[in-house]
Design a protein around this nucleic acid. Structure first.
Lengths: 136, 136
DNA sequence: CTCAGTGCAAACGATTTGCAGGGCC
DNA sequence: GGCCCTGCAAATCGTTTGCACTGAG
């Protein structure tokens, strides 16, 4: 399967640590800015290449819902994401949905489920209040 | 909210029909090729613009999981998608997960859920058999 | 008539990649 | 040492957009 040998470089480690240190879901570019604080000479290309490797090894999850840029999630536990369709933003909050936990390991239409990527769409508190006030 | 007036053009109708006519989840480009059969002079830009409008009005759903290209889904009923991590392909099959149906309308951490985007990751039948045979 | 929609082509922007070193293991 | 990884910059490519024209209502 994945027998490629991987090296533990300062860059790769810094990227992973920086991602895990935040509860939000940064873009490659945001992560690049953050890691730059430690390794000023790191390049954006390196960030992309490492996120690719980290995603392959399952240490990081790619998120493509929502906007144009791919976001990354360093939370290894299964969870769902929330997207507000009104302010068009991803909420920086990981939600555990018990109903979904049961899915992993289950077999669906001859398909062995290993994980799930879930994004709940809805209206956040702030936007709900805004909309309510506009209705006057 | 959405008070913009929309016109019913041949192009928009053809795109929607072509998308609904298939059970798979085509990319904008694939849809472009398909619609070309009927409207040879349609442009890719028009396909994108219409998919944008159709997504806004909820007649079509954007899917960003998986590969680089956005895929589109004309199935209006809530359902989940399946992605095989081995052959790295989206399975052309919409799955209804009863556990998820309950989520819509529910309130999660002060968030009013209106819909969900779910992709189950796993190993498809074909790949499972392939892997099994390699283990000899 | 009006103005949303279209075709075309150029522009954009996130991501990828080729190349010449650099440094883990 | 080998070769995976890096920095840099150019290349890619899905998607968006400006413009003048067309056609739906």
């Amino acid at each position: 399967m994945d027998t490629k040998s991987r090296r533990q470089t300062r860059q790769r480690q810094a990227i992973l640590e920086e991602l895990r240190a935040r509860r939000c879901h940064p873009t490659a570019s945001e992560l690049f800015q953050a890691v730059r604080g430690r390794l000023p000479s790191i390049s954006l290309g390196t960030v992309y290449r490492n996120l690719e490797v980290l995603a392959e090894t399952g240490q990081v999850v790619r998120m493509r819902d929502g906007g144009a840029e791919t976001r990354f999630d360093g939370n290894p536990l299964p969870h769902a994401h929330i997207y507000c369709t009104s302010c068009e933003q991803l909420v920086d909050l990981d939600v555990v949905v018990p109903e979904l936990a049961q899915l992993t390991g289950a077999e669906v239409v001859g398909f062995l489920i290993t994980s799930h990527h879930v994004t709940l769409h809805g209206i956040c508190d702030t936007c709900r209040n805004l909309l309510r006030n506009q209705e006057s």
